[in-house]
């Protein structure tokens, strides 16, 4: 009886180096990616479950607070309008000048022989006064008072112009100066 031999071993074909490398790396890579996926997925589920209830409760809290604030809409409205009006009044009042201290200082320059016939305080706080002095002595007294006010830093930048001697031996003159800011507060 003749014997037949059968070769059951599959002939190993020569593999490309790339395939050899892939055979080594691909399982590692897929295992690692699966592991990372599982870790991240579980973490995200745990994080969402843990924070979702807090998130929802915050939303609920906000809804409730908004409802309560809406219920007090009238109070909010009247408060905001009052505050906005008061703030505007405050801003406008800040621009208000108080002339009275300055005017009383100017009137102090008068004496028996000196009359300040006209005073003008303009928007830039420059003061111009028209003065009538009955004599040279009165005029001198007026000038001394002006110098004293300058020394006391009540007035500065004092300028005199247009001195006219009238037929009654009196003097008419115009004086301009800058008042101290403290006199306008």
């Amino acid at each position: 009886m003749a014997k037949h031999s059968v070769n059951l071993v599959i002939k190993k074909e020569n593999e490309l180096p790339v395939v050899k490398k892939l055979r080594l790396l691909l399982p590692i890579f897929s295992a690692v990616s699966l592991f990372i996926f599982v870790i991240l997925f579980l973490s995200s589920i745990i994080y969402i479950n843990k924070n979702n209830s807090e998130y929802n409760s915050l939303r609920l809290q906000i809804d409730n607070l908004e409802k309560r604030i809406s219920a007090n809409k009238n109070a909010e409205g009247i408060y905001i309008l009052t505050v906005s009006r008061v703030k505007t009044i405050d801003q406008l009042s800040n621009g208000n000048k108080k002339f009275i201290s300055l005017l009383s200082e100017i009137l102090k320059l008068q004496s028996s022989g000196v009359l300040i016939s006209q005073t003008n305080i303009d928007k830039k706080n420059s003061v111009t006064v028209s003065v009538t002095a009955s004599s040279a002595a009165s005029l001198d007294e007026f000038a001394t008072k002006l110098l004293n006010a300058d020394a006391a830093k009540l007035f500065s930048d004092i300028k005199t112009s247009g001195i006219v001697r009238d037929k009654n031996a009196g003097y008419l003159l115009s004086v301009s100066f800058k008042p101290s800011t403290s006199l306008l507060e």
């Binding site: 621009g95 002339f99 008068q110 016939s117 006209q118 003008n120 305080i121 303009d122």
Partner: peptide, 10 residues
């Protein structure tokens, strides 16, 4: 508010 004043003294 007032920002300008003229005083006439007679």
């Amino acid at each position: 508010t007032f920002d300008e004043v003229t005083v006439n003294n007679k």
